[in-house]
Each structure stands twice: as C-alpha cells, then as structure tokens.
C-alpha cells in the first residue's frame, strides 16, 4: 500500500467517488482540505485538472518530435529513479492526481473526432502510470473508452510489471504496452522501487501473448557507464530471446539529458550518484546533453544492434536535434518523417 505523510484534498472534489476510492487505497498520516492545484508538499494531492487533459507531447523546441499525444492525469511517481526529471518538478515522492475523469473522457473522444489519421496517445509522460494504477485506475478506463477507436493506439509506459488491468480488459488490441528498459545493474543502482529487467520482459511477453496487444520499448535514458556497449547488448539479446515472434511497434532511444539546475537536485538527494560523471554540454534547446559525437556513437551502436534483432520494428530517437538525426540517417529527417514512421506501425 502506498504511504504518504499528507493527503491533500481539493475542496472542489471532496465528495467525488474517486476521491473516496483513492483515500481507501492508500495510507496517510494527516488529512488536509485545500484549495486549487498547487501541491503543498510531502504527500499526495487529489484535485481537478483545470486545464486540458489531452495535449500534444511537449517535445523541446528544436528537437525532432513524433507527433505524440499525451494525457496529463497529474504529476509524480512512486519510483525513485535517480535520473528522473519529474522529481525535480515535484518534491521527491510527491504526487498530484486529477480526479475529473469525465473531462478526460470527453477530451479523448473529441481528439479522435478532431484528428484525421493515426493517433498515438500515451499516459506515461508525467509519471509511471502503472505504478499508480492500483489506486488510480485511469488506464483501465481509457482502454475501455477507446476500444472501438480506429487507427489508434494507447501507449502505456511503465517500469513496473503490473499488467493486470490489461489482462482483465475486454479488448486490448488497441493497446501498446511499453516498458522502459536498462541493463539490470543500472536498474538495481538507479531505478529504486521499479521491477527488474526480467520481470518487465516476462510481463511484456505475457500481456502480448494473452491479449494480443502490441509492445514497445524505451531505452530512455541510456546511461553509458562502464562497459555500456556490453551491458546494453546483453539487454538487446535478452529481449530478442524473450520476445520472439511478438509484435514490437517501436523501440526508442534517448540519451540522458536534463535541464539546468538538475545536477544540484541530483547531488542533494543522491550525493554518490555516478550519472553525472560524463561530459555534458548545453544544446541549442537549453537541455544539457552528452558530447554530441558521443551521443551519435551510442545511437549508432544501439540502432545497428536492434535493427538486426528487430528488423520489423521502428527504431527511433527521442528528443534529439535535427543535426543528430541528419548525421545518423545521412539525410534530413524532420518531425513529419518521424510521425510517418511511427504512425505506419499502428495501421
């Protein structure tokens, strides 16, 4: 059971059924009634989303973006991944959940009506959705709301191995179950509280074979510490062995990057961390990244290995500059090209 020091409930939602449901599923020390969306800190806040639930993915200006749609259900994650920027935006372990799901449902239906052509909608942008699904079963609902949508996939990204809601769904053919992966020793070292590599791959196999849903994998962030080539190649080979004959829609690659100020945050909470031990330089979009030729080396290595093992899968790079794409592809490659590549996978 997830435990919080404080449960904050926005006055405007205190009588909602969902608020009662969540309150019963967690343990907490103090209960406070508050006003608005601002998290007071050190706990969980249940409130209304006063803005939009469904938004275009907030890719960085200057990056090649894939035209993804995201559901902003709140913010926060119970996992304590050392590299994760979400904890920089919230206090460590703080969670905000929006409970006005009727608006979320309406916006998702409107999105399908408004947008012609394929839609890739994801719930993993603002925290690990499956890590919270037991107390906040929004993915279960979205799977149901969207089951008759054409040309559509709901991507559910996780570092957990919790797949029960998908297994219990009436239909999950429109679901792309996505797992973030890293070498086991990095998971043990950096992804505090998340499932092991083996557990994630087993969950992937189970959900794909039992529910016929598609899979996706995200190597993001890739963290090139000692023997990184060997470590990542072992993961690629393990994936190929465990996922034989299963449909993998896409695999993304992204090297560790962060905004200015994040280093101080990491050093405060994880003073012995090794994730800052590489060379970092500011990019044109303001993010701080590894030395650009080194990033290219990482992408070339990973893409070459993965393309051999998963020839039918779209291997793409997330949040990279057009310069890097051009050098990797030896031709210009823009956001529209990336969107086309990924959209083709769900047709």
């Amino acid at each position: 059971m997830l435990h919080f020091n404080n449960l904050y409930i926005d006055e405007t939602v205190k009588n909602e059924e969902l608020v009662k449901f969540i309150s019963e599923k967690i343990s907490y020390v103090n209960l406070h009634f508050v006003s608005g969306e601002n998290h007071p800190g050190d706990g969980i806040l249940l409130t209304r989303n006063r803005g939009a639930f469904v938004k275009p993915c907030p890719g960085q200006k200057g990056s090649v973006c894939c035209g993804y749609w995201v559901v902003e259900w709140g913010l926060g994650c119970p996992f304590g991944c050392e590299y994760c920027i979400i904890q920089n935006y919230t206090g460590a372990g703080d969670i905000t959940l929006f409970v006005n799901w009727e608006d979320c449902k309406r916006e998702i239906i409107e999105l399908r009506q408004k947008v012609k052509g394929p839609i890739r909608l994801g719930t993993g942008q603002f925290g690990d959705p499956m890590a919270l699904e037991k107390i906040y079963p929004l993915n279960t609902q979205i799977i149901d709301w969207t089951r008759d949508f054409e040309d559509f996939t709901l991507e559910i990204k996780t570092k957990s191995d919790y797949i029960e809601p998908i297994l219990l769904a009436e239909s999950a053919k429109h679901v792309t179950m996505a797992f973030s992966l890293n070498p086991l020793w990095l998971i043990d070292k950096l992804e505090h509280g998340a499932a092991s590599l083996e557990e994630r791959l087993l969950a992937a196999r189970k959900v794909a074979t039992q529910k016929n849903c598609s899979l996706a994998f995200h190597f993001d962030p890739i963290i090139p510490l000692a023997n990184w080539q060997q470590s990542y190649e072992e993961v690629f080979n393990l994936m190929a062995a465990k996922l034989k004959d299963l449909r993998v829609n896409w695999i993304s690659l992204g090297t560790f990057r962060f905004p200015k100020g994040f280093q101080e945050y990491v050093e405060k909470y994880h003073p012995d961390t090794q994730i800052l031990s590489e060379e970092f330089y500011p990019s044109e979009d303001g993010k701080i990244r590894y030395f650009r030729p080194f990033r290219e080396k990482i992408y070339n290595f990973a893409r070459e290995k993965l393309e051999k093992l998963f020839p039918e899968t779209a291997i793409y790079i997330c949040m990279e500059t057009p310069h890097v794409w051009e050098r990797l592809n030896q031709a210009k490659f823009l956001s529209a090209d990336l969107k086309k590549l990924l959209d083709a996978r769900i047709k």
Binding site: Y281, P282, E284, R289, F291, R292, P293, H323, R327
Partner: peptide, 8 residues
Amino acid sequence: DQTFDRPG
C-alpha cells in the same frame, strides 16, 4: 562550435 553541439 567549440562544444561540437552543432556539427559543421
């Protein structure tokens, strides 16, 4: 570009 962020 002395940081090599921008190739060329």
